[in-house]
Write a protein that binds this DNA or RNA. Structure first.
Lengths: 232, 232
DNA sequence: CGCCCTTCTTGAACGTGTTCAACTACCGAT
DNA sequence: ATCGGTAGTTGAACACGTTCAAGAAGGGCG
């Protein structure tokens, strides 16, 4: 939080132009080694050596080994958005759109299941800037929430007016739940996670539809009030 | 997993009689320092020094620094059970019983909020034996699930026959969710978590009651089938 | 060209969790 | 009492993430 001189890029980021190349080199090398050996087995010394730089240089661009994970998150988010596009173009109904986007997220993550799982623990630490709930990762998080916003806006689903503004974030939360399950999923090819998505989506779909029923209005209200209370 | 000679205690535990004293000394010292300084700030060297033993001795009893956390879990579980007893004796209705037991759990954890939060990340790592889902912590986990079984069996609630056997584990899962929220709860005194409990319990109560309705039977079935599929 | 300032780079050094070969204390059997 | 083996204990050594003082590279300006 020291004051920075004027920069062309966002504050706090030391990357202007000269070092951008090195930054990417280190990042790509790290990602490769993470995939090859796993997170814990990849040492900062190994990353530096493979990238042909000094250890300290990696720390000039990334505050810690954990911060390299954030790069992985950001990268995954972008890939997720891209993989979801065909689904959003193709499907119109809420259920298939949601299922498609959830499956796309797992598709993107699947090649990294082995090592991604081991470092999702870091994301669970509340104090860590890597937590999906933290301010520091609000960028990727908002992008993800927006993606679920698109699932909703582009669909033909009729949603309770009060629920609608909350729903994208709730769907994102459900996605976090899916990921939590996926991380622990030891079934071959993580087929169980696929079953979770296919089983849960119709339930969510039905629940969203039911929220408009007059009889259930009080319950819907109650739930939404609770959520509003609990949000930050 | 080397074969052990006959022991008076459970297998795999090097504590017979002579070392039990040292074991407890190290454990208690560690717990005290964790509370005083936090988990990350407490070094194994500090624990050893304060306990008056060599560093390696701590590793004779506890495989790693993380394993000391498991002691904390076990201890908390026992305290939770004890704190829940008055509630189970006093309350008869399902809702108050559940709320009481959940509050009791948070009561027990509250003094450790500062440091407990930081190491719950370790619990989130799937490969870690410290995960609440792991085989290694099946003992405390089962004890916790049984506690929610008592919430149910001692209550006057009428529960769908198919749901009943699954419910204790589901309630435990909900409790894990409460803890996850609590860990991230930055509100003073974690009052938000209390609101979560008070807000969610009536919903769960209503949901459980509704599960017996004929109209909702197909949904109940669908949910239970999904859960059965996903369990292990 | 020479100067200065910022950006970038270096690698030795620090503190950490963890390991391990050596050692000591205890206890039952001879 | 002596021996032998297991349980318990030691602290130096190792590999790791991280820090930091020192320097190199680059570029704008006289």
């Amino acid at each position: 939080m020291t004051e920075q001189p004027a920069q062309t890029t966002t504050a706090g980021d030391p990357a202007t132009a000269r070092g951008e190349q090195t930054r990417q080199l280190i990042r790509d090398t790290a990602m490769r080694l993470f995939r090859e050996r796993g997170y814990a087995q990849t040492t900062m010394r190994a990353i530096a050596q493979e990238a042909g730089v000094a250890v300290g240089n990696a720390y000039y661009y990334f505050g810690s080994k954990d911060h390299l994970i954030q790069e992985f998150y950001a990268q995954s988010q972008v890939e997720h958005r891209a993989a979801a596009q065909p689904v959003l173009d193709r499907e119109e109904a809420f259920g298939p759109r949601l299922a498609g986007v959830l499956h796309a997220g797992i598709d993107v993550l699947t090649p990294s299941h082995g090592f991604a799982a081991t470092f999702f623990k870091t994301a669970a630490e509340p104090t860590s800037p890597l937590s999906p709930f933290s301010a520091e990762s609000s960028g990727p998080r908002q992008a993800a929430i927006d993606l679920f916003g698109e699932v909703l806006t582009g669909s033909t689903a009729k949603v309770d007016a009060e629920l609608r503004p909350q729903l994208p974030e709730l769907l994102w939360l459900a996605y976090m739940g899916v990921i939590l399950y996926w991380v622990h999923d030891r079934s071959p090819g993580q087929t169980k996670t696929r079953q979770l998505i296919d089983g849960a989506v119709p339930l969510i779909d039905r629940l969203v539809a039911l929220s408009r029923l007059r009889v259930l209005r009080p319950v819907t209200r109650q739930v939404l009030d609770l959520i509003r209370t609990l949000r930050h």
